[in-house]
Simulated assay, not measured.
Amino acid sequence: MIKRNKKVLEPLPAAGPGGPRHVAIIMDGNGRWATQRGRPRLFGHHAGAKRVREVVEACPDVGVEYLTIFAFSTENWKRTQVEVAGLMSLFRRYITKETRALHERGVRVRFIGDRVRLDAKLIKLMNDLEEYTAANTSVHLTIAINYGGRDEVARATKRLAQDVSQGRLDPEAIDEETLPRYLDTYVLPDPDLVIRTSGEARISNFLLWQSAYAEYEFIDTLWPDFTREEFARLCGSYGGRDRRFGGVKP
C-alpha cells in the first residue's frame, strides 16, 4: 500500500505582541460556494467544515489563544428541513471525526448556545468532547450551535432575575460587570477581532454583548476559500489599529 505524504505547510508569520488574543469568525458563504459549482448547499457546508481544522491549527502560529466560530444560529432553523438535518448530521460527524486530532493538538473545545432544541445524540457528543478536552490549553475553541446573541442575553437575564427573586443577588449591586457572569461565554475573554467572510457586512446576532469593542473585518472571501494565510494577514493587520476604547491618547 502506498502512503501519501502529508502536505507540509509553510510557517505563518506571527501577528506580533499587538495581535488579537481572541478571534471570532462568522463563517459565511458555504451555500453560495457550492451553488457556484453546481452542487447542493450541503456540499459547501462539508467543504467549510474542513476549513475549520486549518484555521484552528494556524492559531498557535499567529498567537491566537481563543477562537470562536459561528456554526449554527437560532435563525438557521428557518432553512429547509433537508439542510438543517444535513447540518446536524455534519456536526455529529465532525465531532466524532475530529475529537482525537483536537485533543492531540491541545485544543480545548467548548460549545455555546441553547442545547434544548438539539438532538440527544449531538448533545452527548458535545458534552463528551468538552469533558475529554477540558485540560487542554493550546487553543480554546468555542463552537456556537443554536446560538443567537439576543437569545443568549434573554437567557442570561432570566437566570439573573431568578437569582434576584431567590435572594442570591442584590438588585442594587447589578452593574455592567454582572450580566457577563450569566452569559454562555462567562469563562472567555471578549473577542478582539471579529471576521465575517462572504462579503456581507452585518454581525447577524453574533456575540452582541461581548463584541462591544471588537474590531471587525468584513471580507469578500467565501468561507470554503478562506486560507490560513488570509487568517494570518488579518491577525497581523489588527496590531496596527488604533484602539482607544472611547478615550483619547495623550
Rank of each mutant, 00 (worst) to 15 (best):
G19I: 02
G63R: 01
K50A: 13
E131H: 04
G106A: 04
N205H: 08
R241M: 15
W33L: 10
S204Q: 11
P60V: 10
R41W: 14
Q36T: 03
A212S: 15
L9Y: 09
E83C: 03
G113F: 03
A49M: 03
Q36Y: 12
A58K: 05
A144S: 10
A14K: 00
G44M: 11
G240A: 13
E176S: 04
Q162L: 11
G31A: 06
V248A: 13
H140M: 05
Q162N: 09
R159E: 15
Y216L: 10
A15I: 01
G167Q: 14
R150S: 11
V194S: 08
L90D: 11
A71E: 01
D61R: 01
D170E: 09
S89Y: 12
Y132S: 07
P60I: 04
P11K: 03
I25E: 13
F206D: 12
S165F: 07
R79M: 05
P191Q: 14
I203A: 02
A212Q: 08
T137I: 02
T185M: 08
E176H: 03
D61Y: 00
L188Q: 04
A58C: 09
L207S: 08
G19D: 07
Q162D: 11
N5C: 11
E217D: 07
M1D: 12
L160A: 08
P171Y: 10
R155H: 11
Y132R: 07
I203M: 02
R110N: 14
L193E: 13
I112G: 06
A14Q: 02
S204I: 00
R108Q: 15
A24W: 14
I203Q: 01
R4N: 05
N127R: 06
A156C: 08
E104R: 01
I69H: 02
G19P: 12
A201H: 15
M27C: 11
D170R: 07
A101T: 03
G240H: 15
A120L: 03
A135D: 15
R243W: 11
D190V: 07
I145W: 01
